[in-house]
Amino acid sequence: MNNVVVRDYIIPANDFTIAGEASSNVRKILSQIGVAPDIVKRTSIAMYEAEINAMIHGKGGQAHVEIDENKIVIRISDQGPGIEDLDLAMQEGYSTAPDSIREMGFGAGMGLSNIKKHSDILEINTAVNEGTTVLITVFFKQE
């Protein structure tokens, strides 16, 4: 019963050809092991937003995923510039995305609030000039 699936992914900086591949892969795994579709959707949206943030704001990073029978824990970390004011960054509409990124459709300033909305536990550790770690937990059985 103690089956744990562990996956590690590299998130390259500003490579939009493989942006979202890690979340897409995790989504597939969750579907395959029979997790309810709405939970698969919540999890993959939260992970996608964190993955994209690491890619465009954090100069790339890595994702570490652990899945057991009750939950998924996703840790997305980067060694980028960090977030100076996390409360401000969490607000819907706040974005520092440059024009080149906005032209692709990012920069609504909704990523972090999407992550919060779709995860059961969200923990963000960030330090200026050191990087950011986003820890997302989603439980498979909802009360």
Binding site: S24, R27, G105
Partner: peptide
Amino acid sequence: LSHAMAKINEGDVWITVHTNLNVVAVASL
């Protein structure tokens, strides 16, 4: 994209002027 991601319901036709790869990711998620 993030706004659309939060608001699109399953079964919606999503209309967007973007045609980059990220559109496919949002549509599939």
